[in-house]
Design a protein around this nucleic acid. Structure first.
Lengths: 212, 212
DNA sequence: CTGGATCCCTCACGATACTG
DNA sequence: CAGTATCGTGAGGGATCCAG
């Protein structure tokens, strides 16, 4: 059988840190896979649905590659033997670079071509890319987003921001909508408030550079 | 004839800033091409030599794509009608992301596989990736590197760092060697001094986080 | 039903030859 | 020097099939 499917053979053969980086994460789909795992661990079929068009063989191959490269690891989540893929510390270390690439992508406007696939948790990561610690001051807040088919949260504390999917129990602010609804939607932020005050919500939204 | 060679058709079709970024600069060779142009403008054959293995058709195609995407532009350099490719402002805006990717690539040690291609100007960019403004203080210096087949310089001023190839006329420090010779070589930094003092050279090297 | 493996077709890549 | 034209090869993409 000789399983070499997980080996990416096409290397640049350049003694350069950027080339070595791209040798690892430069293949098609790879960085988008890391993006999804930056928000939360995922199961095989969740990734398959998020990365529409990847094909099961390619996804399996990429997961093997990334595991060999020590960027992700398989985990048994919960008691039911559910297998999920999660980033290792080395994989999580890609976050600054990915946020920088996101910032660059945001500078040319949304350019949302109609029909393009979309997931609300991607916006959560874009929000983190636009976060500016120096604008946060002493702000300490947890904001919950509740939209049809999506639940996620953003936390700012000690000038650091973290994000996640699901429900945060200690959310002072609850938004009736997604991240895009809050920052790009037609409604004013205050209209979307399920819990919390408009002034604290304003302090939250002011911590981001919406057009970098 | 219908010239569609410059169109990259395979897009991710995801309404996500990262996916849109990778749609533009995610194809093979593209980011390495931008890397070379970040150091200085280059001619077609210079790029061809740096990006060993790319093939002339692919390089031409990538250059067209990047010009269409407003990342690079053709310029007539000098009076002899010499054509060079240079980054536009939008292309140069990729620098923070590329430096972040370089930093990630540097965290796992050099891993220099023998036989890999190498260029000294790549190290110049890696040096910029490791530069830490808060370590510079009020340092204001220009360091010239002179090695066989390579000449380049690094400038630190007002806590900002810039790099370039060729000779800087106002260099207070001249190194008899490349960037790698200074930071990784067997010689002590002082041994490589052609001009300048060891103490000012030490202030310079202290402005970088050699192992991030 | 999840988590893949196998097959096959297409297209992007890479090397070479050729042209203005 | 700066590309264009041609063509063989292999990675990507989609469907289907298989094991737990």
């Amino acid at each position: 059988m000789l399983d070499c499917s997980g080996m990416s053979k096409r290397r640049y053969k350049q003694n350069c840190a950027l080339a070595r980086t791209i040798d690892v994460i430069g293949e098609r789909w790879t960085l988008l896979l890391v993006r999804d795992l930056l928000v939360s661990p995922h199961r095989f079929n969740e990734l398959l649905e998020s990365l529409k068009g990847i094909g099961t063989n390619l996804l399996a191959s990429r997961l093997q590659d990334l595991e060999s490269a020590d960027l992700i690891e398989r985990r048994e989540s919960g008691g039911g033997g559910v297998r999920v893929y999660a980033l290792t510390e080395r994989g999580r270390a890609l976050e600054p670079a990915i946020l920088a690439l996101i910032r660059w992508g945001l500078t040319r406007g949304p350019e949302n071509r109609v029909g393009d696939h979309h997931r609300d948790d991607w916006d959560l990561l874009a929000l983190k890319a636009l976060y500016q610690p120096n604008r946060a001051g002493d702000l300490s807040v947890v904001v919950q987003f509740d939209a049809p088919g999506f639940a996620g949260w953003a936390r700012i504390e000690d000038q650091r921001m973290s994000i996640g999917v699901g429900t945060a129990r200690d959310a002072e602010i609850v938004i009736d909508g997604s991240v895009a609804d809050l920052f790009l939607g037609p409604s004013s932020p205050a209209e979307l408030l399920t819990r919390g005050t408009a002034s604290s919500l304003h302090r939250f939204t002011s911590a981001f550079a919406l057009r970098p």
